[in-house]
């Protein structure tokens, strides 16, 4: 469904993403792990069109999206989240959802279209709110929601947008363990309903619970991929997270790429 082939991005002399290739099959939950600065979020920005790739090709459902703008890519059904899930703070839950509806994308072009929401759009909005426990908050500004509710908004938005794939940027960040289980449950039930996911996170336990497949990145490059079990057993990945048994304790290279990567 999503194919990234040999994508590279450099900021000046820094190769933030270095010849990365990865595949996300339809209906799968694929994880992307790596330390801070490994290039995961940059890769997200490239896939969603916010940063242009210097090299390589990105295809979504067989269509080349490498040079498309973020609005165009989103319109194809690729929805990403951001690390801070603030949404549109001074818009209500309802408004936040309506902005993402496909119907609204047509209506906003006509300046004087009526403000009344059409029944089928309203039905979708209610369904999205019901599914994620937001019905009671429909007329509340997002800035007045709790952190777990804001997380749920991310999924409600994707449902409203009729997303085919969601790119989740650190969904587990700042979430307490109880809510984390709910989050994992939500992601799997959406998967069962046909959604595909690419998930970036630091919480390895969370990632390995929900993902069928994991890519590990370091210094912009993919250093391992496979099932969670294989990747987490991979020596490079262990080195990356725990540090290498090293004869030179002064060197901080354990953080970086193994020489032979």
């Amino acid at each position: 469904m999503l194919e990234v082939e040999g994508v590279s991005v450099a900021f000046g002399g820094v190769r933030a993403v270095d010849n990365v290739s990865l595949k996300v099959g339809e209906g799968r939950i694929v994880g992307l792990i790596g330390t801070n600065g490994a290039g995961k979020t940059t890769l997200f920005n490239v896939v969603s069109g916010f940063i242009r790739a210097d090299k390589g090709r990105i295809a979504f459902q067989g269509q080349d999206i490498t040079r498309l703008t973020p609005p165009r890519i989103a319109a194809l059904g690729l929805v990403r989240t951001f690390q801070t899930p603030i949404g549109f703070p001074r818009m209500t839950v309802t408004e936040n959802l309506l902005v993402f509806s496909r119907r609204e994308a047509e209506q906003r072009r006509r300046l004087f279209s009526s403000g009344t929401v059409e029944p089928d759009v309203a039905r979708r909005a209610y369904a999205a709110m019901d599914a994620f426990g937001l019905s009671a908050k429909r007329d509340v500004w997002l800035q007045d929601l709790s952190a777990p509710e804001l997380k749920m908004m991310e999924f409600a938005r994707a449902m409203m947008a009729d997303a085919k794939i969601m790119l989740l940027d650190e969904p587990a960040a700042g979430v307490n363990p109880a809510v984390l289980d709910t989050l994992a449950g939500t992601i799997s039930s959406l998967q069962k309903a046909g959604m595909t996911f690419l998930v970036v996170d630091h919480n390895l336990k969370f990632i390995s619970t929900i993902c069928s497949n994991i890519y590990a990145m370091a210094d912009g490059a993919v250093i391992a991929h496979g099932t969670p079990k294989d990747v987490l057993a991979n020596q490079h990945v262990i080195d990356l997270y725990i540090g290498r048994k090293s004869a030179e304790p002064v060197s901080n290279e354990g953080r970086g790429v193994p020489e032979h990567a």
Partner: peptide, 17 residues
Amino acid sequence: RTLKALRENEPLAMTAG
């Protein structure tokens, strides 16, 4: 609503098309 979305969070608004 489109204008408000741009006011509130431009990157997110872009992901709404």
